[in-house]
């Protein structure tokens, strides 16, 4: 079943104007829901909307992009929210989709309040049932599956990375760009963004949206080289437990957990990770879970699809070398 009003997608991008990975997944989901009603994008004009990105969006089936030209910094949630409200109105959309991130959730809460929309965060699926949007999501650290219907006329849904596989439309479309001048209220300007420092790219996939993640915990004893080696053999992102980040073995931005980065990759490998509930809350919804730990009683083995009781310093390098050999 598809919807009758257009679906609007917030097009997260890097400071130099590249689409963030999960945006293509969210656009794909939007296209499946929208049918003939059409998928529209909304782009904050802090970065240029380049021809290559427009071509990519056209291939994904985005018919129009509303380019937000705001008179305040759209990194501020109150500013972004007011801009999105105006974009929703301009697009005549009944659904706003964003990638799930803390920043987008801040804006989502505000948009929902201002427009009377119902809001669901961290959805891993979305469908139209009897004219209502019904989102699926896991709760309680990935131990329960729920489906949540939006009962209001407008819905705001933030979608987890890896929820759907990005795919091009049956036929590419020409994407029209429409500028939307946004004047924000005085209220939205009361927070000053004193500083914003983008984190430099690591050369590995982004942890929050990677298809494969290798994580290290206490068992690494601070030596992440086997974790990084296997990650490189798998083309994976590197993550860590709270213990590892608190010890300073790796940056805080690598912390997987219910208060850190929540991930749901196709494959998760935990090395020297005990599987404390705080960590499980951030990764238990992963597709396949592999655990390597020298402690046979580690709780992570309770949720592992493939568990090895063994020394990560021998098992990981052996696996990495074998994967490289098989790849030729």
């Amino acid at each position: 079943m598809t919807t009758t009003a257009p679906v609007l997608v917030l097009l997260d991008h890097t400071p130099d104007g590249a689409l963030r990975g999960p945006v293509r997944e969210v656009v794909t989901l939007a296209r499946e829901l929208a049918g003939n009603a059409g998928v529209l994008g909304v782009w904050a004009a802090d970065a240029e909307l380049g021809a290559d990105v427009l071509a990519d969006l056209g291939a994904l089936g985005v018919t129009r992009v509303h380019r937000l030209v705001a008179d305040a910094d759209t990194h501020l949630s109150a500013v972004l929210a007011e801009a999105l409200e105006q974009a929703l109105a301009a697009a005549g959309a009944g659904l706003l989709l964003t990638v799930s991130s803390f920043e987008n959730k801040e804006a989502a809460a505000r948009v929902a309040l201002a427009t009377g929309a119902g809001v669901v965060t961290d959805a891993d699926g979305l469908e139209v049932v009897d004219g209502r949007y019904v989102a699926s999501k896991t709760v309680f650290a990935g131990t329960w599956n729920t489906r949540c219907a939006v009962t209001a006329p407008v819905a705001v849904v933030t979608v987890k990375a890896n929820a759907v596989q990005a795919s091009p439309a049956a036929a590419p479309v020409a994407t029209e760009v429409v500028d939307l001048a946004v004047t924000v209220s005085a209220v939205a300007r009361r927070v000053t963004l004193v500083e914003r420092v983008e984190r430099p790219a690591s050369g590995r996939p982004d942890l929050g949206s990677a298809h494969v993640v290798v994580a290290g915990g206490r068992g690494t004893e601070g030596d992440f080289s086997p974790v990084e080696d296997l990650a490189d053999a798998l083309g994976a992102a590197v993550g860590a437990t709270r213990v590892a980040t608190d010890e300073g073995w790796i940056g805080h931005d690598a912390q997987i957990g219910q208060t850190g980065v929540t991930i749901s990759p196709r494959l998760y490998v935990g090395a020297g990770v005990s599987g404390a509930v705080h960590h499980r809350g951030g990764m238990q919804a992963s597709g396949t879970i592999v655990a390597v730990n020298s402690d046979p009683d580690a709780p992570i083995f309770e949720i592992a699809d493939f568990g090895v009781v063994g020394d990560l310093f021998t098992v990981l390098p052996q696996a990495a070398a074998e994967l490289r050999r098989l790849k030729g």
């Binding site: 890097t14 963030r20 990194h75 501020l76 991130s101 803390f102 920043e103 927070v191 000053t192 963004l193 004193v194 500083e195 914003r196 420092v197 983008e198 984190r199 982004d206 929050g208 931005d253 980065v261």
Partner: peptide
């Protein structure tokens, strides 16, 4: 944040 550090 996921990709940046901010001071507000």
């Amino acid at each position: 944040l996921d990709h940046a550090t901010e001071v507000l």
